[in-house]
Computed example of a mutant assay.
Amino acid sequence: MASSKTTAAQPRSAAPEIYSEVAYAYDGSLEGLLTAVFVSYERHEKPTDVAPEARLQPRLGQRVAAIETDPAKAERVLRGVKRTCGWAAALAVKRAACADDPDAGTAVFRFVRYAMDEQKRRRCDQCRKRLSCKGRGGVGPCPKQRGRAFSDITHPAVEHLFRIARAVSQECEHMRQFARFQHLRGDGADLWFARVNPKASVVPLIMAHFVERMGDAPFIIYDEVHELAGVYDGGEWYLVSTHGNGDLQRALPRDSTDEALYAEAWRTFYRSVSIDARYNPELRRQFMPKRFWKNLTELQESPAALRATAR
């Protein structure tokens, strides 16, 4: 008869903590987002979420990795996107990085990974026409297939990025249409000031347009929603964060003596070209969203009208 042996229970060592998912948190800038893409290749990881640190909401059991912005790594990723996917894809990446959509960072990451992997499958050494091709001579990705991944709008990674980038592009067009400048002068300063309230942080995307329009006239475009100011000194433009500094306009000079005259002339012109018989408020709100009205000179009451109403 076989004898049974009893063994004492051995104490179990503490199991190491295992994370099934990882999320990348960056500083919210384009450079930080592209650095996160670079780090994912460097660490051989595929994060589930890529989002600004202020907006990231970790999932249950998800490890959060803070990504430190590295401009050199970001520039390498951007050059790679331009080289393999074309300038249109690089522009879409820039626009999506400025969006307020919480999934914008993840959309950019998934698109770049998909586009890079798709381009690798179209290498010249795997092409049947590599001997007769007049491209690179059979080395590297096929130059004729550049940009093909971004045109595949049916793929979820492309469709998500395209939708976000298109929304940001529409917001840029709204800012180009509805930005109204005031002439400020005093204490040796002579500049133009515009206050905007976009849905996305589009000031970096529209500064080049207004620099071309304004010439050598210094100006400031202040995004009161994202607390960001684009400053042009007549030669170069740069971005200034106003977070925690209160209202920027309080620290600026007052309106020039002729600003009230110009504003009233603009309101008079706006009223004179309107046709009361064709007034359509719904169509007006469609082409001119109501959230822009508070910063539009033509829709503000003149000081004389306000004094008359007070009486």
Rank of each mutant, 00 (worst) to 15 (best):
residue 137 G to P: 05
residue 29 S to L: 00
residue 282 E to F: 03
residue 88 A to H: 08
residue 193 F to A: 12
residue 264 E to D: 15
residue 97 A to F: 03
residue 13 S to I: 13
residue 13 S to L: 15
residue 206 I to N: 06
residue 116 M to P: 06
residue 103 D to R: 09
residue 187 D to F: 08
residue 155 H to M: 08
residue 290 K to V: 15
residue 293 W to D: 10
residue 13 S to K: 04
residue 183 H to S: 13
residue 23 A to C: 01
residue 22 V to Q: 11
residue 108 V to I: 14
residue 40 S to D: 01
residue 100 D to V: 01
residue 132 S to Q: 13
residue 148 R to C: 11
residue 178 F to Y: 14
residue 176 R to H: 12
residue 105 G to W: 04
residue 66 A to G: 06
residue 289 P to Q: 12
residue 118 E to M: 12
residue 260 A to D: 15
residue 171 E to K: 05
residue 273 V to E: 15
residue 169 S to K: 09
residue 174 H to D: 15
residue 31 E to D: 08
residue 143 P to N: 13
residue 49 D to A: 06
residue 292 F to H: 15
residue 204 P to C: 07
residue 26 Y to R: 00
residue 42 E to V: 09
residue 131 L to Q: 15
residue 271 R to G: 11
residue 197 N to D: 14
residue 177 Q to Y: 06
residue 206 I to C: 04
residue 47 P to R: 03
residue 145 Q to I: 11
residue 194 A to Y: 06
residue 82 K to P: 00
residue 248 L to W: 09
residue 112 V to S: 09
residue 35 T to S: 13
residue 34 L to E: 05
residue 286 Q to V: 02
residue 18 I to E: 10
residue 283 L to M: 11
residue 111 F to W: 05
residue 291 R to W: 11
residue 269 F to K: 10
residue 94 K to F: 00
residue 80 G to P: 00
residue 17 E to D: 01
residue 119 Q to T: 10
residue 7 T to D: 05
residue 187 D to T: 06
residue 208 A to V: 04
residue 104 A to E: 06
residue 128 R to N: 15
residue 63 R to V: 02
residue 71 P to I: 04
residue 202 V to C: 01
residue 297 T to A: 12
residue 181 F to G: 11
residue 70 D to W: 03
residue 48 T to A: 08
residue 45 E to N: 02
residue 142 C to V: 00
residue 6 T to L: 07
residue 102 P to F: 09
residue 181 F to P: 09
residue 240 V to F: 07
residue 233 D to W: 05
residue 232 Y to Q: 09
residue 132 S to F: 14
residue 309 T to E: 13
residue 246 G to A: 04
residue 310 A to V: 05
residue 5 K to W: 11
residue 116 M to Q: 15
residue 224 E to G: 00
residue 154 T to N: 14
residue 147 G to L: 01
residue 248 L to Y: 12
residue 189 A to Y: 13
residue 111 F to S: 08
residue 142 C to H: 01
residue 149 A to P: 02
residue 276 D to H: 07
residue 124 C to Y: 03
residue 111 F to C: 05
residue 15 A to N: 04
residue 54 A to V: 06
residue 180 R to G: 13
residue 52 P to S: 07
residue 123 R to W: 13
residue 155 H to C: 07
residue 277 A to M: 11
residue 237 W to I: 02
residue 74 A to K: 05
residue 208 A to H: 03
residue 177 Q to S: 15
residue 176 R to I: 04
residue 120 K to R: 14
residue 303 P to F: 03
residue 183 H to E: 15
residue 24 Y to P: 00
residue 38 F to L: 06
residue 226 H to E: 09
residue 255 D to H: 12
residue 126 Q to S: 12
residue 14 A to Q: 10
residue 196 V to D: 05
residue 301 E to W: 10
residue 22 V to T: 11
residue 101 D to N: 15
residue 177 Q to L: 12
residue 295 N to S: 09
residue 71 P to F: 07
residue 10 Q to E: 14
residue 243 H to Y: 14
residue 289 P to V: 07
residue 37 V to C: 14
residue 52 P to A: 11
residue 71 P to G: 05
residue 306 L to F: 03
residue 15 A to Q: 07
residue 170 Q to S: 14
residue 22 V to I: 11
residue 11 P to A: 07
residue 33 L to W: 00
residue 222 Y to A: 01
residue 44 H to S: 07
residue 176 R to F: 05
residue 206 I to H: 03
residue 142 C to G: 01
residue 224 E to K: 02
residue 158 V to T: 14
residue 26 Y to D: 01
residue 97 A to S: 08
residue 237 W to S: 07
